[in-house]
Design a protein around this nucleic acid. Structure first.
Lengths: 338, 338
DNA sequence: TTGAAAGCGCTAACAG
DNA sequence: CTGTTAGCGCTTTCAA
């Protein structure tokens, strides 16, 4: 029976039976040795098995293991856009964190499309992933209508009280509050916000926007909605300026959008921060590589990833966890450059 | 026997036996229906099975399937840096392309470290992936020393003649040739190149650099090596300028490096393109979002992904395939802005 | 401390 | 057209 190899046939891979034969033990003992349990094995025997395994270049078959154990040791991450520097950062952090727990990670692109997102979930469930990380582009109701299986769902947003889901996210409200207060510090109260994506429920950034202005007793600037991309923000800013509206402070809901906004402003010769103070959300590596450098609310991706992976692994993790953010001052807000 | 679910126990998932029972057929028939073969099934029976499957929310167990078939329908991609916009683009393209062939994709971060890269290969092999895509950070000899298994290796670089590997890459040499000629067109012959990463063998970009200058009969500018990151280029440019060396044309080996170079140049008040003409390699979405916009050699990631996936799937694909590039003119080279 | 053996869910060869 | 059945490689219970 020739295996249908995708590329070329290789010497058949060694199985635990081969190892057992060579080491003159039973297959059970091979398992005990390879897994350090659940039974003890005499040191001498263990040594023999290990040598046999090395000699045969034996690696346990992960499919068989997954079948037997009912767990794939696999996580899935649904990514709206690989190009978004925030997702790049969080993906990296999740992959590293999962790796440390012996988990591998599958990334699927949803292109921010709710239907495609459901396909992704379907696909991951089909692969028997043990956990899915996502910032859903659809309502909890829609999400809840999907069968769950033995899979932890970790939502990387701040909607709470989702039955059966865990939420891990930055403190969006506080982050935006810091932004608006910082604008005010610079005397910039004629504000506007750029926010891409049609988040199905209220996003903390939007909630924070209104709340912060209210607290300061100033009117909240308009929220210009578009897409959650550089181009979305580029177009939104162009449309805004075409409408004769030019605020003196703009808050971009993400670094990715901020770079699109910067492009539009540059093209029109609008100076930053002299004419417009610009602050973004995310605080990724990109903030130091724009001109001028972006003042930004920094999301602690390492901590988010750590918390999210822990939540996926531990059924008793809290339902919702919030990660603190910091406002990193650079040049685009108007603070003096050192 | 309670399954060790990572999160919470759910009603046991339906198996093909449950479906068979409900549909009053044998398990084989269920398989035939689910897989559209290899045997025909009477329409009425097929219908019954399909309904039973829906009713039970049946999904085939992928581990069992993989175990039985000896193929995981899984690809692995080893990514040096998720933040690099080129990798973001190529990852997206590979994921989409693989998806269309029913394959899922696992992305692993190597952080451009050869040792870590070997770990990644090990890990992917352990997962029984059917193909691995990577731009190796180590020599072919080192690579060849690893056991291959039933796994296609697709190298996304232009080293040829790697026994047992397939190479798919842009035409680096031609791309750089276009860059140098374009510099010359602007009268910029005092050149320098930024190139991160210690590629183990000769990279086409470097080969092209020397070749292009030679053809034009002008001395090739120095190649400043650093890391394959924005910061690497930032530091390289700073070091170069600190040494009193200021070329009038700089070629960055990647968009990611170009944004770091831009930062360094901006910080010193060096004007682009008036003082320095800057062209990068990759031509990702980032080129339109820098200031000024980057003239760049565009890599056709969609085509690279298509070709690479095809090569992984087809044992008879050519050993090496080269994808054409185009020089996309924007503002950083000195061409008049429309 | 070790071994025998049952079975995870699925595919496909073979038999009807 | 449909059913029976032998495994894929592994873990783990139970018995020795």
């Amino acid at each position: 029976m020739a295996k249908e190899a995708p590329h070329q046939s290789k010497p058949q891979r060694a199985t635990r039976a081969d190892v057992a034969r060579l080491a003159q033990v039973s297959t059970a003992v091979v398992s005990y040795v390879m897994n350090n349990g659940p039974k003890n094995v005499a040191p001498a025997t263990s040594q023999r098995v290990r040598e046999a395994a090395r000699a045969l270049n034996y690696r346990p078959n992960s499919a068989a293991r997954a079948l037997r154990k009912g767990a794939s040791e696999l996580f899935g991450v649904i990514v709206p856009d690989f190009r978004n520097p925030y997702f790049a950062s969080i993906n990296d952090a999740i992959e590293v964190e999962a790796s440390q727990h012996g988990y591998s990670t599958m990334f699927l692109a949803s292109h921010a499309n709710p239907d495609s997102e459901r396909d992704c979930i379907e696909k991951l469930l089909l692969r028997d992933v043990d956990g899915i990380f996502m910032a859903p582009a659809q309502s909890y109701d829609q999400l809840a209508s999907m069968e769950r299986r033995d899979c932890a769902f970790i939502l990387l947003d701040n909607r709470r009280g989702a039955p059966g889901y865990k939420c891990v996210a930055s403190d969006f409200v506080d982050g935006v509050d810091q932004v608006v207060r910082h604008f005010a510090l610079h005397g910039r109260t004629d504000t506007a916000m750029l926010f891409g994506g049609e988040t199905p429920s209220v996003d903390g950034r939007i909630q924070g926007w209104y709340q912060a202005h209210q607290r300061l007793g100033i009117p909240a600037g308009p929220i210009h909605r578009s897409y959650f991309t550089n181009d979305g923000a580029y177009q939104a800013v162009n449309a805004m300026l075409d409408d004769g509206e030019q605020p003196n402070a703009i808050f971009a809901g993400s670094d990715f959008e901020a770079i699109g906004a910067l492009r539009a402003l540059h093209e029109r010769g609008i100076r930053i921060p002299e004419d417009v103070s610009l602050i973004s959300f995310d605080g990724t590596f990109m903030c130091e590589n724009t001109w001028p450098q972006l003042t930004s609310v920094h999301q602690n991706v390492k901590e988010i990833a750590r918390t999210a992976v822990a939540a996926a692994l531990d059924p008793d993790a809290p339902d919702a966890q919030q990660i603190p953010v910091t406002l990193d001052i650079r040049q685009s807000c108007g603070c003096p450059v050192e």
